[in-house]
Design a binder for these strands. Sequence first.
DNA 1: AATTATCCTGACCGAATGGTCAAGTTATTG
DNA 2: CAATAACTTGACCATTCGGTCAGGATAATT
Lengths: 239, 239
Amino acid sequence: MALIRHGAVGWPMTQESAPAERGAREQGEANGMTRQRNEREILAAAERVFARHGYRGASLQAIAEQAGLPKSNVLYYMGSKRGLYVRLLERMMERWNALLDDISVEDDPAEVLEAFIRSKMQLSRRHPEGSRLFAAEILGGAPFLQEYLHGELRDWVQARARILEQWAERGLMDPVDPVWLIFLIWSATQHYADFEAQVLGITGRDALSDADVEEITTFLTRVILKGCGVRFRDAAPDG
Amino acid sequence: MALIRHGAVGWPMTQESAPAERGAREQGEANGMTRQRNEREILAAAERVFARHGYRGASLQAIAEQAGLPKSNVLYYMGSKRGLYVRLLERMMERWNALLDDISVEDDPAEVLEAFIRSKMQLSRRHPEGSRLFAAEILGGAPFLQEYLHGELRDWVQARARILEQWAERGLMDPVDPVWLIFLIWSATQHYADFEAQVLGITGRDALSDADVEEITTFLTRVILKGCGVRFRDAAPDG
DNA sequence: AATTATCCTGACCGAATGGTCAAGTTATTG
DNA sequence: CAATAACTTGACCATTCGGTCAGGATAATT
């Protein structure tokens, strides 16, 4: 159940003794509606700040200011900086796990790969801060996510890699290494959240529009599917 | 000349008043060899720490410890945290600018694209900390690199994009959007430095070997070139 | 040998860090 | 309405932050 073991992290834990949920009977229950609103506000603010500055670079003061609350209140709800961070990571992993949950060898490779690219792209778009938070965690050596990477996520990848391999055996696509292919899709889509500043700077845009995202998705689908020899029905009969 | 304007950054500058090179006549001259050795050690340590924790999350204390020097000595050589960070960024941008510096419409698209993928992959491999440092800077909204992204780097991309477009016009490759293609190559190669922890965790490796990198490079070249309709001579007549 | 420039670093500074606590206010419930 | 639970927050704490500085150590120059 718990994605992240709370202790045993790379950095020395000096303070942050994890005071374990002061009042509320359980974390997820959300009894009062003040609590619900404040927690939502804090989580959103924290996601922004952690994404921008990383775990160590983020300050509770900055999070509190962005949430419009005094620092003490943030700690009242979240217990500790570490707990808040872990909670955000777990929320992001849940979103991630919901992705492409059930595919089988019988499915159409083109459809599945396109769905993968599209849903991954939408994840980056709908939760850019969460995506960047995740990226910052990995960039820093994944001190909180080591186990998840070596366990759950590894299994996720291996299972899908096997299906890709079987597709290749059946001649439905080129015999490319499926893990490298998954990483390729991963990186290409993740890029538009993580390197947003670069993309906007270079293209001279203020933001990516829905149309831009659709265009990029189409581009990626076209190039990657063609690149590994998957045939697919052209969606635009006009072009 | 100066890639980065030192003031006018997103964050409020409270301290760090940039004391401007105490003794040495000029920054780049490197007169003594003690200086040379210490600076090299400090820069290497700082690259690691900044890459791992971002600008705000990095501490001079940690950098000093990794360099095996007292904190005061780091400040003696580098003047300020900000100056040290900027110097590292500039060093990385120089490495980057050396990449694929001269290509023309007359060149072979397959050769150029393969060279781009390969050299970018090697940059990620030879300077993983620098790559991650750059990634962390972009992830945080590129507070120090805004101008560079909107200026120099944008021109770099636009110039190469035009060449790709002309190749497409001549029928040497599919008429794909050249900027999205550059981003695709960018992200796919950058991934192996930035998300190293993820790649290692999922593949169950301790590190990527030279053979791994070569295999990935070949994979990326194959898929991307085929994906945008560039024909290329197969390097392995045996497989 | 004397002088000067460079190198080195412990002590120190004000500000910011994560976290605690007690005393308060507000809301819920018997 | 009384009692209890939930929420709020300013004051405070030890530690760490980036940066300064004085003064000693070392090396280069004359």
